[in-house]
Write a protein that binds this DNA or RNA. Structure first.
Length: 921
RNA sequence: GCCCUGGUGGUGGAACUGGUAGACACGCAGGACUUAAAAUCCUGUUCGCCGCAACGCGAGUGCGGGUUCGAUUCCCGCCUGGGGCACCA
């Protein structure tokens, strides 16, 4: 009887499906455990070998937890709204719903192949109306709430209206503009429209204006992804910034809680660091500088934000962002043309380009600001390195203390004031806080670190500045001028946004004739007369809307009364283990944390962090292969023979390449015989390809489809091989070489039970101590490795175990059956087959997990490595319970040790029990 | 540019808390079985040096320093691959 994986896997997959083996109940006496994968976007390219890496890891952990007696929720679904489907629709006229559903079917078939233990009865798709009804409902919660800073939580907007009616906004400072102040009487006197405008500035989901990538030629807004080097990816048309009305989420209100919440969850330190850097909390000051231009309005002030008020006497120039409102007011006639030209240049640049630019650029406005402490006149410049969105969009530049300011000053020959004495070399800035100040009036001689506080106090005392906590994070843009997303449940009447009533949900996404943008670059919904007549919002929600709360819907996926029953969310609570890539560090993971906090504040759920523990899987990269075609010919030159030959470098499908050797016959037939006439210049009879590691992508022909591997080696081999590749959290290029080794392992395991000729060889003999030692060592190792997600070493431990059992010809079920239970999370099909074939009763999915017993593995002595001066010279076997004195005596009596000591006296004797011995002479 | 992260044999990787670097695999080389192939099994495999050989010696974890009895692991500086940077998901 041989190992027929394909029959075995089909059989068990069918059996588990028929018995609903993975169906999970919301009621159980067992403790709960919630394992979640970041659900995929169902792209047209289908699943490649990179996707299942995390899914296999989570499946192993789910099955393991189930064996350990937990009620495990392990669901899967699809993040199904998004740009690619819409792009496909524009190009091929296929409705996104159609292509998306087709893609989902492909994904599902591919996932099923691998034998995951998902409870498919809980599947969700973010594009289903039954799902996005609740995404819209949560939007209404956000819209109808504000952040109460006193209570530090979100509350219904009605509370705010009540407060306004009693006390105006005295207790509730306007989050976007502190200068807005009104009394109760004023509030009551406002028109409804005015009141709504004020309320909008408090809502957690609010409308404002923001810049987008605008492509005039295409008449549409482009995603950053669709802009390459400042022009549109499609057609290469120019792209500029354009201000449009946009929806935002007031995530900045949650900045502090998003920071402090990190202490309560198990994310990697790197992930926490990325999130807190993104939030970017800093303590500093806003300082007002008067404008000193006689020709201009002398009352104008320029407010800057700085974290270093101690350096105020080192300010040599000011820089304002090219978008800053003040520019029109202060630019002098002489500078007007230069300023306009510079602003036009910056308009075509993305924030990223502006920050990454090494070349220094800027333009003088002709205006001067006045240093409030010493009256010094300071030139005001504009430059792209200052971004409008951070702080006040203006900085005071201190070249001796800031590298970018220093380079700017050098480039434009602006004189540099040295306020740190010897700490400034004259060649480059020194950003220290640990130097005494010079040329700084009342701060002279004070260490900068201490001067910060003194300067702050002075600023406030003299009323020219105030302390300010600042965040780098901005409110999250929440609208897209697109079709394939959730419609906003909002109507516009006389410029006032009015939320639909809950009972009107879902607001269905209507069919459109064309996926082209609306008249003014609005979303395609603006082309539907009936939609526009009802004055409905024409934007749709962004991709992250649906994914910000999906983990909750899995708990109660079919509930048509609420998004998730409170009793159910109380039971499942937080996601215990969340697995996905780091690429979501500052997007999805922050948004879903915010949504969870809002839902918690409003009393809809009982926890305010969604994910208790996060495991980041690495990215599987593609290893691309290239062929080299002599220019203008059909002659392909092997990589080693290139020399100076002029060639075109072409991606070639990795599946036609064995290692680096091209299958030339397959290549000739590739892409409908496109290269039928190819001839080859070979080295040693082989065509050797070029190699590069890149992102796995269809267009680079470096994707590997798991289906092919599953067909050739089986799901169990595929699962174990993906884990065996390396640590799950590490990125690595895919290489199919090596899968044979894992396949051999499973066949070797099989042969402990069945022999091709002899048939069954397993027996019920009592286990030998040696066999029990192997088993228990493995139990310990697998349990430890699984708990710490070290799946690659777990696979290797299985290999060692099977090698050792084969060596001692152990074929007894007393040892083999517990081994199968250990193995079943990793290779469920073969484990189930052997489990039943050897007469075990019940499903292996719920078998008792083997318990480690130390008595089978205890050792009495150890081969100690003995070093002289840190170099290992010999091994000596010594009893583990020997005292240090005994060990010293044994070691020093050893002839080899004596030889290496060359008669020198022992300076130090280091003995680490159970580890090693080092003699220092 | 900024933030995060990785770099160990021919290859993927192991070494969990500073304690024998290279587990387990792949590949390669040699051998057994076979008419042959597949499958399977056995032996060897970091590099260099001496030697018939067991063994022995030296070097070695991206590069250069440092701390330590001892460093892949900790510290400082540098080189380099990958991810993210706000409308891809």
């Amino acid at each position: 009887m041989e190992y027929n994986f394909s029959a075995i896997e089909k059989k068990w997959q069918a059996a588990w499906k028929a018995s609903d083996a993975y169906k999970v109940s919301n009621e159980s006496s067992k403790p709960k455990y919630f394992v979640l994968d970041m659900f995929p976007y169902p792209s047209g390219a289908g699943l490649h070998v990179g996707h299942p890496l995390g899914y296999i890891a989570s499946d192993i952990f789910s099955r393991y937890k189930r064996l350990k007696g937990f009620n495990v929720l392990h669901p899967m679904g699809y993040d199904a709204f998004g740009l690619p489907a819409e792009q496909y629709a524009i190009e091929h006229g296929v409705h996104p719903a159609v292509s998306t559903h087709k893609n989902i079917d492909t994904f599902r078939a591919q996932l099923d192949n691998i034998g995951f233990s998902y409870d498919w009865s809980r599947e969700i798709r973010t594009c289903d109306a039954t799902y996005y009804k609740w995404t819209q409902w949560i939007f209404l919660q956000l819209f109808n709430s504000f952040y109460n800073k006193q209570k530090n939580k979100a509350e219904p907007i009605l509370h705010l209206i009540n407060a306004f009616e009693k006390n105006g906004n005295a207790e509730h400072e306007c989050p976007s503009d502190a200068s807005i102040q009104f009394t109760a009487a004023q509030w009551q006197a406002y028109s409804n429209q005015e009141q709504q405008q004020i309320l909008m500035q408090y809502r957690l989901a609010f409308c404002g204006h923001g810049e987008v990538n605008w492509c005039e030629a295409l008449g549409t807004v482009l995603a950053n992804d669709e802009v390459v080097n400042g022009v549109s990816e499609r057609g290469g048309h120019p792209v500029v910034k354009k201000k449009l009305r946009q929806w935002y989420l007031r995530i900045t209100a949650y900045a502090d809680r998003l920071l402090s919440g990190l202490d309560t969850i198990e994310f990697s330190e790197a992930m926490k660091e990325m999130q807190s850097n993104w939030i970017g909390k800093s303590y500093g000051a806003e300082i007002d500088f008067k404008i000193a231009s006689a020709a201009l309005d002398t009352d104008a002030t320029l407010t800057v934000y700085t974290t270093r008020p101690d350096t105020i006497f080192g300010v040599d120039f000011m820089v304002v962002a090219p978008e800053h409102d003040i520019i029109t007011a202060i630019t002098t006639k002489e500078q007007q043309i230069a300023v306009d030209n510079y602003i036009a240049y910056v308009k075509s640049r993305s924030d990223r380009e502006r920050q990454a630019e090494k070349k220094i650029s800027g333009c003088f406005t002709g205006a001067f600001a006045v240093n409030p402490f010493n009256g010094k006149q300071i030139p005001i410049w504009i430059s792209e390195y200052v971004l409008a969105g951070y702080g006040t969009g203006a900085i005071m530049a201190v070249p001796c203390g800031d590298e970018r300011d220093h380079k700017f000053a050098q480039h434009f020959n602006i004189p540099i004031t040295n306020i740190i004495g010897d700490a400034y070399s004259g060649n480059e800035a020194n950003s220290t806080k640990d130097a005494p100040l010079f040329n700084s009036d009342f701060l002279n001689g004070i260490m900068m670190r201490d001067a910060i506080e003194i300067a702050l106090a002075k600023l406030e005392e003299r009323g020219i500045g105030k302390r300010k906590v600042n965040y780098k994070m901005r409110d999250a843009a929440f609208s897209r001028q697109r079709y394939w997303g959730e419609p906003f449940p909002v109507q516009w009447k006389n410029g006032v946004a009015i939320a639909l009533d809950e009972t009107e949900l879902p607001l269905l996404l209507p069919a459109v004739d064309s996926y082209s943008p609306g008249p003014e670059g609005e979303g395609p919904l603006a082309n539907i007369p009936a939609w526009v007549e009802k004055e409905l919002e024409t934007n749709t929600m962004p991709g992250y809307a649906g994914s910000s709360w999906y983990f909750l819907r899995y708990m109660d996926p079919h509930n048509s009364d609420v998004f998730c029953d409170r009793k159910v969310s109380d039971y499942w609570n937080q996601v215990d283990l969340y697995i996905g890539g780091t690429e979501h560090a500052v997007g999805h993971l922050l948004y879903s944390r915010m949504w969870t906090k809002v839902l918690f504040d409003l009393g809809h759920i009982g926890f305010d962090e969604p994910f208790r523990k996060l495991l980041n899987q690495g990215m599987i990269q593609g290893s691309s292969r290239f062929v080299y075609r002599k220019k203008g010919t059909q002659v392909f030159v092997s990589a080693g023979l290139l020399g100076d030959t002029e060639v075109d470098k072409l991606h070639v499908d990795v599946n036609m390449v064995d290692g680096v050797e091209l299958d030339t016959e397959a290549f000739k037939k590739w892409r409908n015989n496109e290269y039928a006439n190819a001839s080859f210049e070979l080295e040693n009879g082989k065509y050797i390809c070029g190699v590069e590691v890149e992102k796995m992508s269809k267009s680079k022909f470096n994707t590997v489809n798991p289906d092919i591997l599953v067909e050739k080696y089986g799901a169990d081999t595929f699962r174990m091989y993906e884990m065996f590749l390396g640590p799950v959290d590490q990125s690595k290029p895919w290489d199919t070489k090596g899968i044979e080794g894992v396949h051999r392992f499973i066949k070797k395991l099989w042969r402990l039970f069945f022999d091709e000729e002899k048939g069954a060889v397993y027996n019920a003999a009592p286990a030998s101590p040696a066999a029990l030692k192997i088993l228990h060592r493995t139990i310990k190792k697998i349990e430890e490795d699984t708990e710490r997600f070290s799946f690659n070493t777990a696979v290797s431990a299985f290999m060692i175990c099977v090698n050792d059992l084969a060596d001692i010809k152990c074929q007894t079920t007393e040892v083999l059956s517990p081994l199968l239970v250990l193995l079943t999370p990793y290779a469920p099909h073969v484990a189930a087959e052997l489990w039943t074939a050897t007469g075990n009763k019940g499903s292996i999915l719920d078998a008792p997990y083997p318990v480690f017993d130390a008595k089978h593995v205890t050792e009495s002595s150890k081969e100690y490595p003995v070093s002289i001066n840190g170099k290992v010279r010999t091994n000596i076997s010594i009893a583990l319970d020997a005292s240090e004195e005994e060990v010293t005596a044994i070691v020093l009596a050893d002839t080899l040790i004596q030889k290496w000591m060359e008669g020198k006296p022992v300076k130090k004797f280091i003995f680490v029990k159970g580890r090693m011995i080092n003699v220092v002479v």
